[in-house]
Design a protein around this nucleic acid. Structure first.
Lengths: 194, 194
DNA sequence: AGTTCACTTCAAAATGAAATGAACCTTGCG
DNA sequence: CGCAAGGTTCATTTCATTTTGAAGTGAACT
């Protein structure tokens, strides 16, 4: 792509631009803004804290966007502010579990509440129809699945032992190679023929 | 919210509307369109397959959107098409791992390639600067982290044993209650004093 | 062959989110 | 005190994404 870079300065520039872009994409993909990712990516490579101005200049963002994005990142616990300087939180586990803690958990909680409300409506019927009964089984399936998800997220974000477990799982994967398809669990009925 | 519904038909209508909306939100959150989620939500509650027309009418979507969304969902392996009828794939594990398989894995692979390229650029320097050396350690951190993530995703999507493991983890969470903060692993340097 | 109906395609419009930039505050310093 | 320089806020613009709807395709029925 680019010819090998020879001085440390230009290599660092390349690294910063590139990593900012990598994080920019990841961020956009996960429902954050590209700018949030870019700033984090830049800071990730910097030992010394950077100021608003440094960041703005380096990434050519408007002053306004820089300011708002910085504070959002601080709120997300992804950057830390020290006076007028910013540093990246580089422990990725902290970053990720932090995001999950706030965002995905809220989401799943809302979903659980609503699904349970649906289940209640369907199960309180005096004279269920075939269709409503069917829907009820599906809703219950779902409710169970979401609860499992909720518990899993809890496990994930209550840091410590779980992280090691995940590491173990990853290790296992290599061992097992490929699938073993132990279906069941979420198919109480046999709804569809091919 | 709404007063209790008394006949099965209206309860079912409520359930469908509501679940369509729940899935609509989840979908939007995870980078799909709200419409994709709504269609899936609707179908999730239906025993009998539905046609394009049924779906379009029930959700009041335009014909065009219905058509395009249906085919995207089929492509994602989230619906199955049987002639002119559609059914939901209701095994949530299949659905989720399917999405991960295609989407998140691609993403992380791209990131890994780019990060490694950055590492190469920084490590091939004849005369590294302090800053470039620092950046290199960070990039290596990251590369390792991404590889772990990659392995974890692989474990997750190679179905079977892993699912049970996840279930176990979830079970553990309840036991452990709260955090145990065993940091380390991704902090080779001590970059920031609060 | 011709008409109809169900679906698909695609360009154009609508929507909604993010970035901008100007006005407005602070802080620090002569 | 007052004025820069640097930051923040927020209304506006910009832009990407999604939805629409009109036109096109093709199968089934007559």
């Amino acid at each position: 792509m680019t010819a090998p870079l020879h001085d440390a300065e230009s290599a660092l520039d390349f690294a910063q631009d590139e990593l900012a872009d990598v994080f920019g994409n990841i961020a956009a993909f996960w429902g954050f803004t590209k700018t949030q990712g870019r700033i984090y990516g830049l800071l990730f490579l910097c030992e010394a804290p950077m100021s608003h101005g440094d960041i703005q200049r380096r990434l050519s963002i408007s002053a306004g966007s820089t300011s708002m994005t910085l504070s959002s990142l601080v709120q997300w616990g992804v950057l830390r502010r020290d006076g007028r300087l910013y540093v990246a939180e580089t422990d990725m586990w902290k970053v990720i579990t932090g995001v999950f803690r706030r965002r995905e958990r809220d989401q799943i909680d809302t979903a659980i509440v609503r699904v349970d409300r649906i289940a209640a409506a369907l199960s309180s019927l005096e004279t269920p129809s075939k269709a409503s009964a069917f829907a009820l089984t599906r809703v219950r399936q779902l409710s169970e699945f979401f609860s499992l998800g909720r518990r899993f997220i809890d496990a994930f974000i209550s840091r410590g032992p779980v992280r090691d477990l995940l590491t173990n799982i990853a290790a296992r994967a290599a061992t097992f190679g490929t699938r073993t398809t132990t279906s069941a669990t979420l198919e109480p009925d046999a709804p569809l023929g091919h």
